[in-house]
Amino acid sequence: MQEQGGNGAAHWASAACRDFDAQLSDYLEGGDRPGVVSHAAECAFCGAVLSDMLMVRSASAELADDEPSPRVWANVRAALVAEGLIRPPRERRRWTEWLLRPVPAAALTALILLSAFAIRPVLRRHHRTAVDFAELVVGHDVIQNVSQMETAFREQSADLNPTIKRAYEEDLASLNGEIKECNDTLARQPDDSLSREYLVSAYTEKARVLESALELGDGDGR
């Protein structure tokens, strides 16, 4: 049995080689094991083991990432749409953009007729204030619920990630602005049927935003 490999063709592990084996893992983990380096310098076989291990480690760290095929996103997107997690852009469009959208003449006529026969008498009879327009159009319960959600959000929002919190607050500020604009328009022009639609849309979106924010607040923190 040959004790030390050196330059010979054959090699059997010596006691020093076995020590090297025992300490190699700790050395590679950053431990202070001077015996590993000194033995690697004098034993060709263990020297090759150490060099190879260092190379395997560094080559693995440099392994570049691969690109998945486009079908992965296509499938993910299709599932998100099917599950309603991606919402159609139309639902999220600002009502001012919506206003500029071409409205089919027949639909517009129907809305005007509706407001002329149904809404105007009600509005005139009660001399509604701005807040009351919202109640009349959206419904008392909806306004009450959205208001409660907003209060709950303000109470919980301190716990949210500041960036996420800011994004929600910006969205809410924008939606509250839309709601105010609708109410102002209705106060001047109680017959404005499109403003009614936008008001409903703004409240719906606000409820969604608040729902999402509150779910976040109730989450497990991950």
Binding site: P68, W73, R77, G84, R87, N161, A167
Partner: peptide
């Protein structure tokens, strides 16, 4: 930042989902 994309994805914004996918797809797939 992921945080902004996450906040937008939470509200159903397709562009945010796509951007999150784009940022992380290579590492996840690899």
């Amino acid at each position: 930042s992921d945080a902004e994309l996450i906040a937008r994805a939470q509200r159903g914004d397709e562009e945010a989902f796509a951007a999150l996918f784009e940022v992380h797809k290579r590492r996840v797939y690899s």
